[in-house]
Design a protein around this nucleic acid. Structure first.
Length: 857
RNA sequence: GCGAGAGUGGCGGAAUUGGCAGACGCACCAGACUUAGGAUCUGGCGGGUAAAACCGUGGGGGUUCGAGUCCCCCCUUUCGCACCA
């Protein structure tokens, strides 16, 4: 017998042997895993259920931060759990590797963007491997390499063929610091998404756009299907798309401005109030206003001041609170419904980029118009009355503005007496019939401007020929290679324009001399479809094989930060719908389920260099090991909440892992098992401490499994495993063990199961423990343990006894005790009897297996 | 202003359907083992009390035998949107 009389903890004192050496264990298994590149490989399988788990691909900035680690620890835990549950798991990783930081670095360090990017990728890939993330690297996607970006170009041509890529000159967002155009989605509160202090300017430029607005309705409608997405993200997208049903109405300018018959078209959702319109309000940037100020210097100055006010409000980050100002133009326009001439104003609260940039002002029935009219003494005219009011009384003393849609029209000619809803329908119909307007839908969503005046991006495959005009590059000539050795600066427009060997080409149509488009694509193009490429990453004939996509898609679980709720997640939904329409895929949406993990913060703030509160994953791995680093990021908070990084917390996890490790060291089951001869003692009923341990084991498996299936609260999974380990260590268990009361077979079972339970969250140590438990199979795909509800059930239950809702005693009853038994036991309890003394029992409530409440008076 | 979260010990956080509030971890305190302990193992740990009683889940009401959990009002805070006509 290897055991002596003394408890195991007294037996040895071997700090060296007993120390949990994460670095040694992680190096050992890291080498084994690296030697088998096919370990995490996945191929379509005829019968196994598939599971595509995906974390958002990183930008290769040079080093992972804790937010990455948290993101990937969640995804990796899920992937490993699904493997163990028999799924055919696809778990890939790649690099969103085009973009401005590479150019900035190039300027700063005089390193070519490509070299900088690729060496960053190498460094970060090494970090990921060190952290033990189980990615199928054979499917790695690097968006800045021609074998990927050629398909961006191919897709662009498909969009162009379909009439969904077009070039137009328009006012676009310009960030002076980025020295390039930004998409609307990249402008946050009037500021650049990369430069929070940089006000975005408007410039008139020729740009390429993708017609995402074609899908506006479907993008909105299908949000309903995405019940596996966070409500928050769906709401954000809904707001971004901003669908609004309304009416366009033309107001005739009577030839006083512009050519005869010119009109101002307004957009309104409340055409039912049009008889109450007492002015028109135009955005300062409205084309009619531009015409007007050309010949009126005074007006020009006033309008410019309005624009300046808008800008100042944006800079202050508070557009909503701008004080309303306006200027009367001196002109009038005719309301087509009643023929009335209403004054035309220009106002700073009207936005050029929504609706038509012109509104009718109905001060009696709109808060903003009311405020404006009061300020400038404009007329208020009541045209809607509350349903239930007395008309005379209301008209005598109207409570304005009255804005609800639940009212009756008055003073509205033939439409008087209609309710608002019917009036909107009938008046829109009338406008259409008479040719001065129509019902319409306005969207906040605009087409996606994808041109960037930058070097480090996908060249747009178009050519300008003097003879043939705009000509697409032929598919067979793709990719249009992004040249190396391009001088990069942040001044003077597209860097590619200064590279003659790139710029000068021949026309695909006529063969004559021609010039290439020198803008590159927004990097959000790259990430709009990269996850399809993972299914067939090596394909050089097509972006992917549709059959492979059909097998793997939709993504079963997509995991990333909420900061992409609008940008990436709306573009990639759009891209999917387009691919479906050209027959490449059959799914309507890319991802069935989306999970947005919380941020990693420290000392109450997001980790950032400027605050100096950044924790480096490398340092944590070196100090505590990859397992502890990953596990702490799962333990410190539920994954959807922000995580407050505390160094002492990761120490606690390291301590826990060491505690688990020592349990295996001190109880070398394979040795004991081999030494044990004769019939196993398992047929005997288990001793009480053995039964307690067995019960805890099955309860733990149940808790961890339930959490993995459902709500992903890995913090409580880990707590549960800690409780199990505490049970293993508890003195009763330990003494019982040394007294031989715990059968070796049970110890062995516990050791196998703890390794299995830890495998998704601390894979290195789990593999080591699996081996220490005498197992030789590959833990990665070892079956997830099953719990037996009978074994998890308590034999006896402790039932709290309340008197008038206050805890007065605890009684222990058998698990199968009847209500009467419980009642009796409760009233027999000494403390309960004391609390009941002299009182009259009114009622006794027994909740089986939960509690007893005795109501007295 | 609108929308979506959150508010529980000294700290991170548990409490899945209304049923023992504070699991688990950190910090702290004590003990054991030690030449040593920033190792390990064990115990304690919401406030309050000598011990009880009693008080405790942002505040105030309510429903209920029973509320962190459900309903109403309010406060604070994070995030998103914000004159969207």
């Amino acid at each position: 017998m290897p055991q002596e009389d003394k408890p195991a903890r007294d037996r040895v004192q071997e700090p060296r042997e007993e120390r949990y050496d994460a670095q040694r264990i992680e190096q050992k298994w890291g080498e084994r895993w690296l030697s088998d590149p096919s370990l995490y490989a996945a191929e379509a399988h005829p019968t196994k259920p598939k599971y595509y788990v995906l974390e958002m691909l990183p930008y290769p900035s040079g080093a992972l931060h804790m937010g990455h680690v948290r993101n990937y620890a969640i995804g990796d835990a899920l992937a490993r759990y699904m493997w163990m549950n028999g799924y055919n798991v696809l778990h890939p990783m790649g690099w969103d590797s085009f973009g401005l930081p590479a150019e900035n670095a190039a300027i700063k360090n005089n390193t070519p963007p490509k070299q900088w990017t690729l060496s960053n990728i190498a460094a970060m890939k090494a970090q990921m491997k060190r952290l033990g993330f189980a990615y199928d690297w054979s499917r790695e996607v690097t968006t800045c390499l021609p074998d990927y970006y050629r398909w961006n170009q191919w897709f662009f041509l498909k969009f162009y063929e379909a009439g969904l890529a077009y070039r137009k000159s328009s006012r676009v967002n310009w960030c002076p610091q980025c020295a390039t155009v930004l998409a609307n989605e990249q402008v946050v509160g009037g500021m650049c998404w990369r430069h929070e202090d940089q006000l975005v300017e408007q410039r008139e430029l020729e740009q390429w756009f993708l017609r995402i607005t074609k899908y506006a309705d479907e993008l909105l409608r299908d949000l309903q299907k995405l019940d596996g997405w966070p409500e928050k993200v769906r709401v954000m997208q809904q707001n971004w798309i901003g669908r609004s049903q309304g009416t366009l109405v033309d107001f005739d300018l009577g030839g006083t401005v512009g050519p005869a018959g010119s009109t101002i078209t307004i957009f309104t959702t409340r055409v039912d109030t049009i008889f109450g319109a007492t002015s028109l309000q135009l955005a300062p940037q409205h084309p009619i206003v531009c015409d007007l100020i050309e010949r009126n210097a005074e007006l020009r100055a006033q309008v410019e001041e309005l624009i300046a006010e808008q800008r100042r409000a944006k800079e202050a980050g508070d557009i909503g609170a701008i004080e309303k100002h306006g200027v009367f133009t001196g002109r009038y326009a005719k309301n087509p419904f009643n023929g009335e001439a209403v004054p035309v104003w220009v106002a700073n609260y009207i936005l050029m980029d929504y609706g038509t940039g012109a509104i009718m002002s109905v001060p009696a029935h709109d808060e903003r118009d009311f405020e404006f009219a009061k300020k400038y003494g404009l007329e208020l005219r009541v045209v809607i009355l509350p349903q239930s009011s007395d008309p005379e009384e209301t008209m005598a003393e109207p409570q304005l503005p009255f804005t609800t849609e639940d009212g009756i029209l008055v003073n509205s000619g033939e439409f008087s007496g209609l309710n608002c809803e019917d009036a909107i329908t009938q008046m829109s119909a009338r406008a259409a019939e008479k040719g001065f307007g129509k019902a319409t839908v306005a969207f906040r969503l605009k087409d996606w401007g994808i041109s960037r005046q930058r070097y480090w991006g996908t060249p747009i495959p178009m050519v300008y020929c003097d003879k043939d005009g705009l000509v697409p590059v032929a598919e067979k000539d793709l990719p249009v290679i992004l040249p190396d050795n391009v001088p990069v600066t942040l001044a003077g427009g597209s860097p590619l324009a200064s590279v003659p060997s790139f710029l000068n080409t021949t026309c695909p149509k006529c063969g004559g001399p021609a010039k290439r488009e020198t803008d590159t694509m927004d990097t959000f193009v790259d990430s709009s479809w990269y996850f399809y490429r993972y299914t067939d990453a090596q394909n050089d004939k097509a972006p992917f094989d549709s059959a492979k996509v059909a097998y793997w898609f939709p993504i079963d679980q997509y995991i990333g930060g909420v900061e992409h709720a609008i940008l990436h997640l709306i573009y990639s939904r759009f891209w999917t719908k387009f691919m479906r329409d050209i027959g490449l895929v059959t799914n309507d949406e890319p991802a069935a389920r989306l999970f947005t993990q919380g941020m990693v913060i420290k000392d109450g703030a997001k980790m950032s260099k400027s605050l100096g509160n950044v924790v480096s994953p490398d340092e944590m791995v070196a100090r505590y090991g990859a397992d502890a680093t990953r596990m702490y990021s799962l333990f410190a908070a539920p994954p959807d909440r922000d995580l407050d990084w505390q160094e002492s917390g990761i120490e606690g996890i390291q301590r826990f892992l060491g505690r688990v490790y020592r349990f295996y060291l001190r109880n070398p089951v394979p040795t004991i098992e081999a030494a044990a001869t004769g019939p196993a003692s398992e047929t005997k009923p288990l001793s009480a401490p053995a039964r307690a341990l067995q019960r805890k084991l099955h309860q733990t498996i149940k808790r961890v499994s339930t959490d993995f299936q459902g709500r992903w609260h890995f913090n409580t999974c880990i707590s549960a495993i800690m409780e199990l380990v505490n049970e293993v260590y508890s003195s009763s268990a330990e003494e019982a063990r040394s007294a031989g009361e715990i059968p070796v077979s049970l110890i062995s079972e516990v050791q196998r199961d703890i390794a299995l339970l830890l495998a998704p969250m601390a894979p290195y140590l789990a593999h080591e423990l699996w081996e220490m438990a005498g197992q030789t199979s590959n833990l990665l795909k070892a079956p997830w343990p099953k719990y037996d509800p009978a074994l998890a059930a308590e034999d006896e239950i402790e039932i709290p006894v309340q008197v008038n809702g206050k805890l007065r005693g605890l009684v222990i009853v058998g698990a199968g005790a009847s209500e009467d038994d419980i009642k009796q036991a409760a009233r027999a309890d000494e403390k309960v009897r004391a609390a009941l003394a002299g009182k009259q029992v009114v009622k006794v409530i027994v909740v089986p297996k939960k509690l007893v409440n005795i109501v007295v008076k």
